[in-house]
Design a protein around this nucleic acid. Structure first.
Lengths: 384, 384
DNA sequence: CCATATTAGTTCAATGGCTAAACAAATACC
DNA sequence: GGTATTTGTTTAGCCATTGAACTAATATGG
């Protein structure tokens, strides 16, 4: 339902306008902020003072003068106070990072540990230990953790993991707090897509399908800079798009699903080398591995073409275990996209590997915390 | 880019809050609007006065008193001034309707005429004649047409029809005005989905994939009450989702596309009865037609399962030529959805025929005009 | 070196939209 | 007829933004 606008709504909205401008273009002088926002210099001055008092922005030394007039003071996002804690529970590892408001990773930890034989409670406990260490490190750097988000390999809604097949989890509650910090959870592919979005240089592309490939395959969908999650947050199940209706049975109960062709186990099975280091074998030119990757690429291309036809997304980002395999998967993917996407004659379809690699999910998770403050600074300021 | 908030922004926002409440729940007293919006009675009174002065709402007689206290005056959307003109160019017909602010169809006209042998200029001219007659009829009823939208069977972006294969159009500009009224254009499936959205009783479901089936197949995607159009407005190309990667060649250059299985020509070809009245033959139990519909339903189910897995949409609405065939298509569609959609165990997937039938696109098109006024009344008020 | 032009940032009074409280209007009930 | 209740209006105060004026800090030309 719509919220009524009040006098205070003006200041809240314009705090966010200024924060977003500074986040995109720092350093920016007050006069430049005024010019770009359309607010007056008087208003911007008052807003910047409020943000400085709240520890969200800071001033930097002016650049060398390049003309007549008073030198400008630069305003940048502060690296000094609020930070976001991003975490990931995956099949083979737990990971955490602390991201400050300016987007710098201030702490990072990774624990290789098989989660498959452990109860959810044991896993949350292990993650809690990493979180405590991260929290401590952040405080030692003068940061305060404003919130935490954990990336999970499954369907997540209403603070519950509905199913994470590769962890063996069903209807598992996500704790409300971790080490005293408010905690929320999200799907790994969605959070990794958010991380990728912010790692892109400057402008384009801000629409893409991020493919997260492990045993299962998921996708994070970003449309014009916004994550698309569907009705209940369950969009992006690329791994269960039908490649061939009469294809092999899938664990989901269907047949011919993409993950039966391009999931990690499927590629190993296709190559006949169950324990191969796939990127290494591909780089060495192993014929069965190259053949398996070409087949997987074709299947990915078919499924991604359907995704692009439905969603109008001009770019495919290959993440997780698919990222190091991108050189061998991309040709087949691109070929299928070119053949099967109706709009390929008007817009160039691009396939590229993840810029953030294995850190995409934890950075994207931390980003949900910092982005919330940038997008809506007023609640944070009010809570101090 | 974000717009700065100004003093006037408060009134603009709250005009829209009130309009939206009245649109959803008319009639509503000023006191009820205040209670539901969170604004004070004093503010609501001033806002309603401004809307009444602008001809956007009107007062109705109070209902019978049912307790102590002054009787309330009801506020409803006005049927008396602004209206939207919705139009459709389809292969076999042109259609127009005039929709008032309260959602009533005040004029409707349909002209059966094959557009396939005509130039775009001839088609625009024919549509212009219908528009003039509709405009005249609206004025005679005391309405003024605030804007016009035309539904087209193809890809539309930047006031241009990029391609409409079944009309034979390529890079065809949409005129800026029609009979002196500002004109914009949109994809038929998208506009029909908007029409369906507003035809739903009360609340659920506000997320669905509307399947528009003619020779080609398109889809309008509605997620939590919002139309999803993708990066450039080209989302929803369901007809070119791959059903079988090795299937028959498609005119788009791909193979195994859904419209080769479930398009109107494809169903006729499958049944071996090229000129059959499909709904009638199905009702009479014609074996080749029933077999063809079962196959088409299976193919629709495979493609729609992929769409639902990707988009998290719990409902399928069958429109255009598929609507009267729904009783025979739905069983196979539902079967495939149940088998192939990962989330089918948590949410009930529904298949149903269009509520608006052949009028979905023209009503949805007119709705873009009236919805813009309800959602943002301030520009309309300022222009009077 | 000084006066002028220019740009950045601050100060101040006016404006308008919302609010809370008080008031007026119109009913039901005892 | 008096009191309670609900609806709708009036009024003065508050606050966030604005435009104009002012102050601060530089470059440039005579």
């Amino acid at each position: 339902m719509d919220l009524p606008a009040r006098q205070r709504s003006l200041r809240e909205h314009n705090l966010a306008v200024v924060m977003r401008l500074v986040a995109r273009n720092a350093p920016l002088s007050r006069a430049a902020i005024a010019a770009q926002s359309g607010l007056t210099r008087a208003t911007v001055s008052a807003i910047v003072d409020e943000l400085i008092a709240g520890g969200l922005v800071t001033e930097v030394s002016p650049p060398p003068p390049n003309g007549a007039g008073r030198p400008a003071t630069g305003v940048v996002l502060s690296g000094a106070t609020p930070a976001g804690l991003g975490m990931e529970i995956n099949v083979d590892y737990l990971a955490v990072c602390v991201l400050d408001l300016a987007g710098n990773v201030r702490h990072r930890a990774h624990l290789t540990a098989d989660q498959r034989g452990r109860t959810p409670s044991q896993t949350w406990s292990g993650l809690g230990a990493l979180a405590r260490a991260a929290h401590k490190a952040a405080v030692a750097q003068g940061l305060s953790i404003a919130g935490a988000t954990v990336a999970l390999p499954g369907l997540v809604s209403e603070q519950t993991v509905r199913i994470a097949p590769n962890l063996g989890w069903t209807e598992t509650p996500i704790p409300a707090h971790i080490d005293g910090v408010p905690l929320s959870g999200g799907n790994e592919a969605n959070l990794a897509a958010l991380g990728e979005l912010h790692a892109l240089p400057g402008s384009e592309p801000s629409s893409f399908v991020y493919v997260s490939g492990e045993i299962g395959i998921g996708a994070g969908l970003v449309v014009n800079g916004q994550l698309f999650t569907g009705t209940q947050g369950w969009a992006g199940e690329l791994g269960h798009v039908t490649v061939d209706p009469a294809g092999p049975d899938c664990t989901c109960g269907s047949r011919g699903c993409l993950e039966q062709y391009a999931g990690e186990d499927a590629i190993r099975s296709l190559s006949g080398l169950p324990s191969a280091d796939l990127p290494r074998a591909a780089a060495e030119g192993s014929p069965p591995v190259l053949a398996a990757l070409a087949q997987a690429g074709t299947a990915l291309g078919v499924a991604l073409s359907s995704a692009v036809n439905l969603l109008d997304l001009p770019c495919v980002v290959l993440g997780s275990h698919l990222a190091p395999l991108a050189p061998w998967l991309s040709p087949a993917i691109e070929h299928e996209l070119q053949q099967r996407v109706l709009t390929s004659r008007w817009s160039t379809l691009e396939v590229r590997p993840s810029a953030l690699g294995a850190d995409a999910a934890i950075i994207g998770a931390a980003r949900t915390v910092t982005s919330a403050i940038i997008t809506s600074p007023a609640p944070y300021l009010a809570s101090r």
